[in-house]
Design a protein around this nucleic acid. Structure first.
Length: 607
DNA sequence: TTAGGGTTAG
């Protein structure tokens, strides 16, 4: 039963006011809201496209058709007399326009992506005393979420509370979505907790909100909450939860969701299939990627894109290019994202000629305009291959203004190929663009350290201290028995991790006997060798690995996710360890995957 | 007859 379907005009019927609701009510006054909304709509209405239609009077149709008729009348009038004429139409037909007709107009404008029109109709409803009902608000809130205007969003929330519609589950779900989209996720969560009624869609709105706000662990927790609440997850639910697992690299959680889909007979539609492939790709599980891809019937450009970029990030450039050829053979039209995957595959594989050709073909054969991301891939591809001049020329030839990311890609190449002169030129540009980003200083410091220019290193260190710039700490996570453990790099031994340090000390000793040499090139400053060894010894990925070895069966693949790029020393350490301990280790760093097995890495030391 | 979905450089 919908308790609030019956209209409660201006009743101030509030069930329970939370902090958010109280705050909202203090700023809400319906007349003020009306004038503010009209003002908002007028100020933004200048660019609206309108279609001219003919019409004179309202025929006696049902409400939806009358709503559509009115809309045509409005469009026609607006195209001839300007946006304000909508109010004149309302005035002319005062008394014969009802809320159902207005709802129909609001929803149709929503479908046409004319969100300001939806809001304008809503504002005029109050002006002409047409009372909204419970069907009005979901559409109005959706339009507000699309426009992402926080002021209007809070105003409409105020009206919802004041008119007593906060208990309508459709309206409050739309409100949760609005708060997740353009207000605050914590306020959305509070609203959700206070809702007297919720259903699967409300849970979906919250879980989606967490994922879109990058609160991936909370999204997975909310999914568990949904199951505990007895709500039935749908295909939409699992798509969003899988996306959270992808971001976290949470393989076991993702696999569990896959089993859940199977046992609960959810459809393996194109959304679910694509989300599954993406999850497995971002967990470094290429075999599962292929299995799901062959299993699903329905595919679209998204599905192909996650497959191609999945192969690329896992170091299987040839497979990515083969998948791209197959995509074309099966008559799918590639888009800009497809070419990002293709160029990324060439980049990680060092396929310079192929990359140049694909970049040309993207423009000439497929008519796609390269974006800065595509140039970024090309600069990285050329830079890694040592073609620094060509990479610089490409940046200079761009019609788009180069961004810090593209300069940093070239700077990394300068470090790899020891080109200090170009590195210094770039760093000056970078520090102008991003004076507070510690990563830039660290990159330059690494270039100086490599050439043993300790005076410059010291000067740079002083500048960082003076400006209060800190290096982003390395952070790695590993999933053991469905629990994600996180480790942060540290120069000090923390007492609670003593068992892990001991394990790490033993590992280092054993690996040194088997050919591992501590790489200290990446250590930042001019410090003694022993101290440098110490500073790379407790990198977060090594701590995660030591913890994984201590807490997993011998045949278990270890999967580690790192927030920065894996360092040279850790890369060597993992290679030797995979040989000595016969373990398969997968590391997802900020850029790509490294699959370590029998002393080798899938990146073939090219990263 | 209303609310909620997947991909993207380094």
């Amino acid at each position: 039963m919908k308790m609030y379907n019956r209209l409660l005009p201006f009743s101030y019927r509030i069930i329970r006011r939370s902090r958010v609701q109280q705050e909202i009510c203090t700023i809400s006054n319906l007349d003020f809201l009306e004038s503010e909304m009209l003002k908002f709509v007028h100020t933004q209405a200048m660019d609206l496209p309108f279609q001219a239609t003919n019409g004179s009077k309202i025929p006696d149709y049902n409400d939806v058709r009358r709503g559509h008729f009115l809309m045509k009348l409005i469009d026609d009038s607006v195209s001839r007399n300007g946006f304000e004429s909508i109010a004149r139409i309302f005035s002319k037909y005062r008394g014969s326009i009802n809320s159902q007709q207005c709802n129909s107009m609001i929803r149709t404008y929503l479908d046409l992506n004319k969100h300001l029109n939806s809001l304008y109709i809503f504002a005029l409803m109050h002006k002409f005393s047409i009372l909204p009902d419970s069907s009005t608000f979901p559409a109005v809130l959706k339009a507000t979420a699309q426009l992402c205007d926080t002021g209007v969003g809070k105003m409409i929330h105020g009206i919802v509370i004041q008119m007593g519609f906060i208990c309508d589950v459709y309206t409050s779900t739309a409100l949760v979505h609005l708060y997740c989209t353009c207000l605050s996720i914590s306020d959305a969560s509070q609203l959700f907790d206070e809702m007297p009624e919720r259903n699967a869609v409300t849970w979906n709105a919250l879980i989606t909100g967490y994922t879109h706000n990058r609160k991936f662990v909370k999204a997975i927790d909310a999914f568990r909450g949904m199951l505990a609440d007895g709500a039935q997850p749908s295909e939409r639910t699992v798509v969003v939860v899988l996306s959270a697992c992808s971001h976290l690299g949470a393989f076991n959680q993702g696999k569990w969701i896959h089993e859940f889909i199977y046992h609960n007979r959810l459809r393996l539609n194109v959304f679910v299939g694509t989300a599954l492939i993406d999850m497995y790709a971002k967990c470094g599980a290429v075999y599962e990627v292929e299995k799901v891809f062959e299993e699903i019937r329905e595919k679209n450009v998204y599905t192909w894109n996650v497959l191609i970029s999945g192969y690329a990030m896992n170091g299987q450039g040839d497979a990515a290019l083969q998948a791209f050829s197959r995509m074309l053979m099966e008559n799918f039209k590639p888009d800009e994202v497809t070419f990002l995957g293709v160029l990324c595959a060439c980049c990680h594989q060092g396929l310079v000629t192929e990359g140049r050709w694909q970049f040309m073909s993207m423009k000439q054969q497929f008519g796609l305009q390269p974006r800065i991301e595509h140039y970024g891939c090309m600069v990285d591809l050329l830079g890694r291959a040592g073609l620094l001049e060509e990479a610089l020329e490409l940046i200079q030839s761009m019609s788009i203004e180069p961004d810090p990311i593209i300069w940093r890609a070239l700077l990394c190449a300068c470090r790899v190929h020891g080109n200090t002169k170009l590195g210094e030129y770039i760093i000056k540009r970078l520090i102008e663009l991003e004076p507070n980003n510690g990563e830039n200083y660290v990159l330059l410091s690494n270039i100086y350290s490599r050439e043993r220019r300790w005076a410059e290193v010291g000067k740079l260190r002083g500048m960082m201290n003076l400006r209060g710039i800190r290096k982003v700490p390395g952070c790695s996570s590993i999933e053991i028995n469905n629990v994600v453990y996180e480790f942060v790099a540290s120069n000090d031994r923390k007492p609670e991790f003593e068992a892990i340090y001991k394990q790490l000390d033993n590992l280092i000793k054993k690996l040194k006997e088997n050919g591992y040499v501590t790489g200290t090139d990446m250590a930042l400053y001019d410090i003694e060798k022993e101290e440098k060894e110490h500073s790379v010894m407790y990198h977060s990925e090594k701590l995660a690995l030591a913890f994984g070895l201590l807490n997993s069966p011998l045949d278990c693949t270890l999967r580690i996710v790192k927030n920065l790029r894996i360092c040279l020393d850790c890369h060597e350490f993992f290679k030797v360890l995979s040989l000595v301990y016969k373990r398969y280790i997968v590391v997802r760093d900020r850029n790509r995957f490294h699959h370590f097995y029998e002393g080798f890495c899938s990146c073939r030391d090219y990263w």
